[in-house]
Write a protein that binds this DNA or RNA. Structure first.
Length: 424
DNA sequence: CTGGTACTGTCCCAGATATA
DNA sequence: TATATCTGGGACAGTACCAG
């Protein structure tokens, strides 16, 4: 699947097209040129839409009969700006498809915001994106891409200057900080980071330096800061130059695009710290900028596909057909196996870790959209510290526990009910 | 020292589905 | 049609630990 997510030059600017394993579509003489949209398919889709002015994706799929990929066909036509699709969280059979406005006209920002912009990252917020030049000022056919407004401001203070950080109004905003000792670091975050550092009593002595990172444009919100705290924690832990004093922060529920933006933000901050000899001074600058692929210990050692993992193999079935497999190696070490289904949506009750990890692992390529688009699929064995944590991550909600995993026969033995089913 | 919060695990409820 | 079972989701308690 990895190759299907091409972002190369052939990828259309309409980003969801990048997850379709087909050639880029084109419109020639009013007819779509694409494997999924033959002439009759195009006519049928437009007829269904025109009957009432709009149609659900489910109606179109039904109208297309045995078409192999009706959703893909519709998305091709959306890509070509023949149709638009409205949906709330994810594209499903209830998503409404209608004709695109004929003239470019003013961009429907709200509808634009709902368009899928990266694989598997539906409902991405675009409020973090800013443009510096009005589209109207550009000639037709030229588009300035929006970029993240996150720009790190990095402040380094001596340990004894700690109290003074509370007096800097520029630090009275969400941000993250690190208290650096000889061989140990304490990482934290706060909605008002300067005050937090100045008045805190974190359990670390012999502080040599204090690093405070905020956003120059003050677009970093409290949730971003808590997510960035966990990400900085992982970056520092990966250097092995310091022992991180506190436990792994819980992170926050951010979407995959925001995760990517924060990662870039942190990369620039870490590079500044390297250039000033504060932290991240070992290894290549490139590695400092990119950071570790994943938190230490979350990816299990590589395992040949035909080799069974250690431990008891367990199975978790959910959402009418999705299956995750795990190896229970001990009460506090569960391995969710490569190829397991991970539900795309998360429930409102899902904890922040469930959402944070989805974004982190999409960013890292440890989760990919499945071939049928119904779920994410894990691309490596992933480590969890509890059965319920693993189950809740897979299902995307609470209410699943360690007992939700059912032991399976690692030798592929038949189900005890199979003889009865055959007899019937 | 205390309050707040996250994580884990258990319990319960509601709706859908299967079965008698 | 009534009942049983399954599944998804929320509420809650115990624990641990951070933050003030």
């Amino acid at each position: 699947m990895a190759n299907a997510f091409s972002t190369d030059a052939n990828a259309s600017g309409k980003s969801y097209s990048s997850f379709m394993p087909y050639s880029p579509p084109a419109l020639v003489a009013g007819l779509v040129q694409h494997e999924l949209v033959a002439g009759p398919t195009q006519l049928t889709i437009l007829r269904i839409v025109d009957e009432t002015g709009s149609a659900s994706l489910g109606d179109i799929a039904e109208g297309l009969g045995d078409h192999p990929d009706p959703t893909g066909a519709v998305l091709v036509m959306v890509d070509l700006e023949i149709l638009v699709i409205d949906y709330t969280d994810v594209i499903d059979q209830h998503s409404v498809v209608r004709r695109a406005p004929e003239t470019p006209g003013p961009v429907d920002a709200e509808a634009e915001a709902r368009r899928p912009s990266t694989f598997g990252c539906e409902s991405l917020e675009v409020n973090s994106i800013s443009t510096t030049t009005s589209d109207a000022a550009l000639p037709t056919g030229i588009e300035q891409l929006a970029t993240s407004p996150l720009v790190p401001t990095v402040v380094v203070a001596a340990g004894e200057a700690r109290r003074g950080l509370g007096k800097l109004s520029a630090l009275n905003r969400p941000g993250i900080y690190a208290l650096i000792g000889e061989r140990q670091v304490y990482v934290g975050a706060s909605a008002s980071v300067g005050t937090r550092v100045a008045s805190g009593q974190q359990p670390i002595g012999d502080i040599k330096h204090i690093v405070v990172i905020t956003d120059t444009n003050d677009t970093l919100c409290d949730e971003d800061a808590r997510a960035a705290e966990r990400m900085l924690f992982a970056r520092i832990e990966a250097t092995r130059a310091f022992a991180v004093m506190n436990e792994l922060p819980m992170g926050a529920a951010i979407d995959a695009q925001r995760y990517s933006e924060l990662d870039g933000f942190l990369g620039r901050a870490c590079l500044a710290l390297r250039h000033h000899g504060v932290m991240f001074t070992h290894g290549a600058a490139r590695a400092v900028l990119s950071g570790p692929r994943q938190e230490a210990g979350r990816v299990a050692p590589l395992r040949p596909f035909n080799e069974m993992p250690d431990g008891t193999c367990m199975e978790l079935c959910f959402d009418n057909g999705l299956v995750a497999l795990a190896a229970r190696q001990s009460d506090n070490r569960w391995i969710v196996l490569e190829g397991s289904d991970i539900r795309i949506e998360t429930a409102a009750s899902a904890n922040s870790s469930v959402r944070f990890l989805r974004s982190a692992w999409l960013h890292a390529g440890l989760l990919e959209l499945s071939a049928d688009g119904r779920s994410f699929v894990t691309t490596r064995d992933l480590v969890f510290s509890s059965g319920s944590g693993a189950a809740q991550f897979c299902v995307g909600s609470k209410g699943r526990t360690r007992d939700s995993w059912v032991a399976i026969d690692p030798d592929g033995g038949i189900d005890p009910a199979t003889p009865a089913l055959i007899a019937a």
